Amino acid sequence: MLNTLIFVALPYVALALLFGVSISRYLTNRLTWSAYSTELLERNLLYWGSNPWHYGIIPLLFAHLIPVIFATAVALLLGNQATLLILEGIALGLGLLALLGILLLLLRRVNSSILKRATYFSDWLILILLLVQTGTGVYMSAFLRWGSLWYLHAAVPYFRSIWYCNPQVEYLADFPPVVKLHVACAMVILAVLPFTKLVHLLYLPIDFLKDAPILYRWRGGRVAKREF
């Protein structure tokens, strides 16, 4: 029953909400599509949290997506033990970087009284979900060996079965609870994403990582340069 809920019902509910609500929100209220900046409310932890988070999570998202699209090529790549060890180490490092970033971003919201007033329930929810998702990912990378291989040979066929509307629960049914929590949390994130400011992720905001500093001009003649 629990496996059916996590691996059959939840994915289709999440996909329906992701596509349906995202398209509706984009067409009817495009001004809320991107996340508003809170840099003027708190700057230091935003810098130290946002950069590790984005530099860690964006490569990991692509690392999860590429085997789904190019399974044969990835299988050949992971067949080399040295390559596998290197990639596993890189993935763990990126996971720890993302985990540090999301912890600092959550701490930033908790510690700033003025920022709390601009923080909604959806902000707390998505931050906690991302913390759980990143934390379980790091745990699996550290303690469940050769995650790249079992992801390729178990998770990828399962994801494809979902896409082809023929869910094959048996691929993941016997995995440890932490794996099921990781999958379930990912589905919940997809489901709530269109209702949150994280929807800007769908716009692929990668260019901001190399943006030039934005120039602020303040009344009174002071000039400050801060970088998002």
Rank of each mutant, 00 (worst) to 15 (best):
L2H: 14
T4W: 15
L5Y: 14
V8C: 08
V8Q: 10
A9P: 01
L10T: 09
L10W: 03
Y12K: 01
A14C: 03
L17E: 00
V21G: 00
V21E: 04
W33A: 11
S34R: 14
S34M: 10
S37K: 09
L40Y: 02
E42M: 03
N44F: 09
L45Q: 11
Y47K: 12
G49K: 01
H54N: 12
H54I: 11
Y55Q: 07
P59W: 08
P59E: 02
L65Y: 11
L65A: 15
P67R: 04
A73L: 08
V74E: 03
G79I: 08
G79N: 14
G79D: 10
N80R: 10
A82E: 11
L84H: 12
I90M: 12
L92S: 09
G95A: 10
G95V: 04
G95Y: 07
G95L: 05
L96F: 10
L96D: 05
A98N: 04
A98T: 07
I102M: 01
L103H: 01
L105M: 15
R108A: 01
R109K: 10
R109P: 01
N111A: 14
N111Y: 09
N111T: 13
S113R: 11
L115S: 05
Y120H: 13
W124M: 03
W124I: 04
L125I: 04
I126Y: 00
I126C: 03
I128K: 02
T134Q: 07
G137P: 06
G137T: 05
S141I: 01
R145P: 02
R145L: 10
R145N: 14
L149Q: 09
W150S: 06
W150C: 10
W150N: 07
L152N: 05
A155H: 02
A155T: 15
V156S: 05
V156M: 10
V156E: 06
R160N: 12
R160S: 12
I162F: 02
I162G: 03
W163I: 12
Y164T: 15
C165G: 05
P167R: 04
A173G: 11
V179K: 11
K180C: 11
L181M: 15
A184Q: 05
M187Y: 04
V188S: 05
I189Y: 00
V192K: 00
L193D: 00
L193W: 00
V199N: 06
L202S: 04
F208T: 08
L209G: 07
K210Y: 13
K210P: 00
L215P: 03
Y216N: 00
W218A: 08
R219I: 12
G220F: 09
G221R: 13
G221C: 09
R222Q: 14
K225Y: 13
E227C: 10
F228Q: 10
